[in-house]
């Protein structure tokens, strides 16, 4: 199955926020929900400046921390993208803490983040943000094609930006948003090495199944054992009572003998 990805070319992005607006309009986001934020970045001292915009959005990590912590499966991976099914979200907000990019927000008591316009893209369309981006900073397609495009674009801007690089090829297991970065990740407020703590894997892969499994097992074991043990105890009680009766009888007999 093909993996899909976005191309996000931060060298081209001009900060117009058309993507953010298209996303809200096309996805009918509830008031307060916003999947894309443009955050101005500035470095240096006047007049020696560099800068641009961070296009802050879900990066669709292959190794998605949010999916790992999501207890209900509301967040899940599909086609290389991180989907969100708000119907099963309970708003525990573990995803907001787990995300190394600080992306998901709780809106209306449930998690809120980009799901790569699941319905439209599956019907063969393009995500709303990609469709409208006037500066051609956004593309969407098969990940290997997107990666090739990203590398080509980085080569094309290297004369202008010697530090240009592709970000997201391997970060966090490979992002579903492949970024053409004109500068170091830090210059765009991106973690150089986004990490998912190992414990997250333990939690989802060990603790959760273990919890359900061991609880089930204990119920099963005790269920069976209960019948046997209860019988044993009844038997034991009966024996004890018989023994006591015997003892009393013996005692009565002894008294009688005396």
């Amino acid at each position: 199955m093909a993996l899909y990805a976005f191309l996000l070319d931060l060298s081209r992005c001009i900060g117009c926020e058309a993507c953010a607006a298209a996303c809200i309009a096309g996805n009918e986001l509830p008031a307060g929900a916003q999947y894309i934020h443009l955050i101005e970045q500035t470095h240096g001292v006047f007049p020696h400046l560099t800068g641009g915009f961070k296009n802050h959005r879900c990066y669709h990590c292959a190794d998605a921390a949010c999916v790992k912590v999501c207890p209900t499966g509301a967040l899940y991976k599909e086609d290389g993208l991180t989907r969100l099914n708000r119907d099963v979200c309970i708003g525990c907000a573990y995803c907001t803490d787990a995300c190394p990019f600080n992306v998901p927000q709780i809106v209306d008591g449930r998690s809120s983040k980009c799901d790569a316009c699941a319905a439209t893209t599956k019907a063969g369309g393009q995500p709303w943000c990609v469709r409208t981006c006037p500066s051609d900073a956004l593309r969407y397609g098969e990940r290997r094609e997107i990666l090739a495009e990203a590398h080509a674009r980085v080569e094309a801007i290297r004369a202008r930006y010697p530090k240009a690089r592709v970000y997201g090829e391997a970060e966090a297991g490979g992002l579903g948003v492949v970024i053409v970065l004109p500068d170091a990740p830090e210059a765009f407020d991106l973690p150089a090495n986004p990490q998912t703590p190992l414990l997250l894997d333990v939690w989802q892969k060990v603790v959760q199944p273990a919890a359900v499994g061991l609880t089930g097992l204990s119920v099963l074991v005790t269920g069976v054992a209960a019948i046997i043990a209860r019988r044993n105890h009844m038997k034991e009680l009966a024996e004890l009572r018989a023994q006591q009766a015997q003892t009393e009888q013996n005692a009565g007999a002894q008294e009688g003998e005396r």
Binding site: D97, C99, W203, A211, T222
Partner: peptide, 28 residues
């Protein structure tokens, strides 16, 4: 943060696992 969350969630889950098994035993 991711690490703190992972730790807290793991402790929470494991504790609850023990308590639940204890409950089962208790009822037993």
């Amino acid at each position: 943060g991711p690490a703190g969350l992972a730790l807290a969630a793991t402790i929470h889950g494991l504790s609850m696992l023990v308590l639940t098994v204890l409950l089962v035993g208790h009822l037993y």
